[in-house]
């Protein structure tokens, strides 16, 4: 990756609040036009990294570059970066159109021109019809889209999104995910997306950085992060995993080390069936119907419990107390560091 197509570069960035190392040495390169997600639980440092890029916080040490230019120490209003806030931060005393036009107004764009551009931005999020309303008169989803329009109207190089879908209900969130992705493709703007929702990160992103305690623990494409988690933390935070510690690995897998196995990679067959490859005998402890499938908890004879995700198409559903044989492919077993 050369400087020419790097949108954001962080070099050994630290941000300490007294004793707390909120960001503890982050190196990061985000490419132009990329949909990049920062994933982690609250307090993992992802939001602080976003605020450092936006300029609301200054790093304790390290440098931040935007399009190859060092922007460390510059004020937010000097940065060609815009933020969509978690609480949307719409100006309550202005109507929707004035909110969207605000960035143009402070840049001195003439009134008719900025109204036109603001209407165009509102059209992109299909909200022209609420231009005259105050933010308080909008629904959560509409406010979210107004915040989005307000940020993209000034055509920033990078759009920062701080858990923008967190306050929306599930249905709306899924719909907005599709819209965000389309918008990002249409505009070609780099999106840096902060979320604690691993599913959202997997769905939307080109690449994901998984944060823990102020550091990036894994950086890669969604499938890399999901299929090859580097450690127990990533394996359990991104999706669910059956984790085998050293003892369990020896007992069940007959192997040294620690491993993770995704529930949907395991198949349950009758104990009489002869199956090649890795397998473990057990008894069904619990079955939970999920709609798209069925989660089956199996008590293995070797000791540990195994969570299995069965597709709902399986004709003969296993029942509590059934003896089963769990099978999987060797390559689905992920060795953890």
């Amino acid at each position: 990756m050369t400087a020419a197509n790097t949108a954001i570069r962080l070099l050994d960035v630290h941000r300490h609040f007294g004793e707390v190392r909120a960001v503890d040495g982050v190196d990061l390169e985000i490419a132009d036009g990329e949909f990049f997600s920062m994933l982690g639980p609250s307090g993992s440092g992802k939001t602080t990294v976003l605020r450092l890029i936006a300029g609301f916080e200054q790093p304790t040490s390290g440098t931040i570059e935007l399009a190859g230019k060092d922007i460390t120490g510059t004020a937010p209003f000097e940065r060609d970066v815009n933020t969509v806030f978690q609480d949307y931060a719409l100006f309550p005393h202005m109507n929707v159109l004035d909110n969207v036009a605000y960035g143009l107004r402070v840049r001195g764009v003439k009134k008719t021109a900025r109204r036109q551009q603001a209407m165009d931005a509102l059209a992109m999020v299909r909200l022209e019809h609420v231009a005259d309303r105050k933010p308080a008169q909008l629904s959560g989803g509409q406010r979210q889209r107004v915040a989005l329009a307000r940020s993209i109207v000034v055509r920033p190089k990078v759009l920062l999104l701080d858990e923008p879908l967190g306050a929306l209900d599930l249905k709306l969130r899924e719909q907005m995910q599709v819209e965000l992705k389309q918008l990002q493709r249409d505009l070609g703007i780099t999106f840096v997306f902060v979320t604690h929702d691993q599913e959202e990160a997997l769905t939307l992103s080109d690449r994901i950085a998984v944060f823990s305690e102020g550091r990036i623990v894994q950086l890669g494409s969604p499938s890399e992060v999901y299929e090859q988690p580097v450690n127990e933390y990533v394996a359990s935070f991104v999706g669910t995993s059956n984790l085998f510690d050293a003892e369990a690995a020896r007992a069940v897998l007959g192997a040294e080390g620690r491993f993770a196995l995704r529930p949907e990679k395991i198949h349950l067959v009758a104990p009489s069936a002869s199956a090649g490859g890795p397998q473990a005998k057990g008894k069904v402890a619990e079955t939970i119907y999920l709609g798209v499938g069925r989660r089956v908890v199996v008590d293995l004879e070797a000791g540990p419990q195994l969570v299995v995700l069965e597709p709902s198409t399986t004709e003969a559903a296993v029942k509590r107390g059934d003896a089963v044989l769990a099978t999987w492919r060797t390559e689905d077993l992920v060795r953890l560091t």
């Binding site: 970066v81 100006f91 107004r105 402070v106």
Partner: peptide
């Protein structure tokens, strides 16, 4: 809310303009 001041700065308004608008 503090986020309103941040939003104004984020959208390009220097401090004096943020206070006024």
């Amino acid at each position: 809310p503090g986020s309103l001041l941040e939003a104004a700065g984020d959208l390009g308004a220097p401090s004096a303009l943020t206070i006024r608008t």
